Amino acid sequence: MRRKMNSENSAFFRLILNNKFVTGLLVILLLLMVVYMLHAVRFIFQPIAAFMGAVGAPIVVAGVFYYLLNPTVDWAEKRFKMKRNLTITLEFVILTALIVWAGAVLVPIARDQIDSLVRHWPEYWNNITDKLNQWTSDRRFKALNSWVKSTNSNLEGYVGNVASLLKNSGGSTISSVFSTITMIFITIATFPLILFYLLKDGHQLPGYMTQFLPVKARQSFIETITEINLQISNYIRGQLSVAFAVALMFGIGYMIIGLPYAWLIAVIAGFLNLIPFLGSFLAMIPAVVVGMFVSPMMLVYILIVFIIEQTLEGKVISPKLLGNSLKIHPVTVVIILLSAGNIFGVIGVIFGIPGYAIVKVLASRLYIWWKHNSNLFDDDETNDHITPVAPAPTDE
């Protein structure tokens, strides 16, 4: 009887508990149960969401400036033995001077170009409408003509619906605008303080957090935090540097060809370049729209500037400043941008890639830990450590 029970137990263990496929299904089931329970008790996380909504913007802005300025602080401390407080103070003075210079020089230029664009917009709109009417009046473009008319009617209806919505919810709209302006001022006022202490004590934060962890988990935690910090710092510094270079190249190119609102369109192109892969395409839209109002030859000049810029960016600037630090496949990047943009909007498009990088590091570390501590991969590890033996020579 005991032998029969042992054989049954061994068969159950072999077919169920020691089966990789069944174990994988059990793990997936447990994960789905955890996700369901977190969704059921999501009201618990509402205070956390409210807290992050209040302090999230200053922390994010301070984090971006931290990754830009911290290498200089570390370099001065190691190279010249300068105290971090002194280096941080010098950086704050230089940054403030740059902001004041930009406000005194660049803001008036941008304001004039925006005012000019707004004043001449009706003329531009009438010109493009006349061209569309000329193109669609031909019988060969009958289908295009009907599509333009239907699109215009749909656009008019959409604008009317938006206007009525704004009219009916004027109070809430004003309140939303006021809260947004208040958040901007709070961010501007508080992020320098957060940035100062991040630069001063940020390098000590991982070591401080490890004292609350078990001794065996400290080394793995430090390695994970270091990898995440390296991924995010390379991405932020690289993307911002490339965006600045793109804006500078487009500005110079558009000034040479005489495109109206050259620097305004160049700055827009630089901001759009923060969106990986899709940013380059989106950056062409404002230039093409303005170039259509000037002449067909201007479109050719814009295309030449775009080709030169893309060549320099792809062959020289991006490999030097950005490289392949994240090692993410282009198809994966497009999927992340589409999904994150659909879920979180513009914020998701901008922060989707670094968020994916963090999740990727955590998931890979968790998988390595699970593979090392479970008995499911013993055969794989055994095969990995097997050294092929060369056949013994034979005498003929």
Score class of each variant (00 low, 15 high):
Ile252Asn: 03
Thr187Val: 03
Tyr158Gln: 13
Ala357Glu: 01
Ile317Val: 15
Leu264Ser: 10
Ile335Ala: 15
Glu381Lys: 13
Leu337Ala: 01
Ala363Cys: 11
Asn161Gln: 13
Leu303Arg: 07
Ile307Arg: 03
Trp101Ile: 13
Thr332Gln: 07
Met249Ile: 12
Tyr124Val: 02
Gly170Ser: 05
Ile225Met: 14
Phe250Thr: 02
Trp147Gln: 14
Ile236Asp: 06
Met1Tyr: 10
Leu278Ser: 05
Ala287Tyr: 05
Gly352Gln: 07
Gln211Val: 13
Asp74Ile: 08
Val290Glu: 03
Thr387Ser: 08
Leu132Tyr: 12
Thr23Arg: 13
Val61Gly: 03
Val162Met: 05
Lys315His: 09
Leu68Thr: 08
Ser153Met: 13
Val346Trp: 09
Asp112Ala: 14
Asp384His: 14
Phe141Trp: 14
Arg79Trp: 07
Ala49Glu: 11
Met284Trp: 00
Phe221Glu: 08
Ile302Met: 05
Tyr235Met: 01
Thr89Ala: 13
Gly24Asn: 11
Gln239Trp: 01
His39Asn: 14
Asp112Met: 09
Phe221Gln: 07
Met297Pro: 07
Ile368Glu: 14
Gln113His: 11
Pro108Ala: 01
Leu30Tyr: 10
Leu25Gly: 12
Trp135Lys: 11
Trp147Leu: 15
Asn168Glu: 13
Leu321Trp: 00
Leu264Asn: 05
Trp75Phe: 14
Phe221Pro: 10
Val349Asp: 02
Ser233Asp: 09
Asp138Gln: 09
Val107His: 09
Leu337Glu: 00
Val246His: 00
Ile236His: 01
His120Ala: 10
Pro286Ile: 00
Leu299Arg: 08
Arg14Asp: 15
Thr332Met: 03
Asp138Arg: 06
Ile28Gln: 06
Val334Gln: 06
Asn19Gln: 09
Phe191Thr: 07
Ser176Phe: 14
Asn324Lys: 09
Gly56Lys: 07
Leu155Ser: 14
Gly279Tyr: 00
Thr182Lys: 15
Tyr261Thr: 04
Leu26Lys: 08
Phe178Gly: 06
Asn383Ser: 14
Ile16Trp: 10
Leu69Met: 10
Ser153Thr: 15
Gln231His: 14
Leu312Glu: 02
Lys149Gln: 15
Gly63Glu: 05
Lys142Val: 10
Asn18Ser: 10
Tyr235Asp: 02
Ile114Glu: 06
Ile304Met: 01
Ala287Cys: 05
Tyr67Val: 12
Ser10Cys: 04
Thr23Pro: 08
Lys131Val: 12
Pro354Ser: 01
Val294Trp: 04
Gly157Thr: 12
Val177Ala: 07
Leu199Gln: 10
Ala104Arg: 09
Lys360Met: 12
Asp74His: 07
Ile256Leu: 11
Val148Gln: 11
Leu98Tyr: 13
Thr173Met: 12
Thr226Tyr: 04
His203Ser: 09
Pro393Arg: 04
Glu396Gln: 12
Pro319His: 01
Val105Phe: 08
Gly345Pro: 00
Pro296Glu: 04
Ser374Gly: 02
Arg237Gly: 13
Val61Glu: 03
Gly238Lys: 01
Ile347Tyr: 03
Asp115Gln: 12
Ala243Ser: 11
Ala269Pro: 08
Gly56Leu: 04
Asn145Gln: 15
Val34Ile: 15
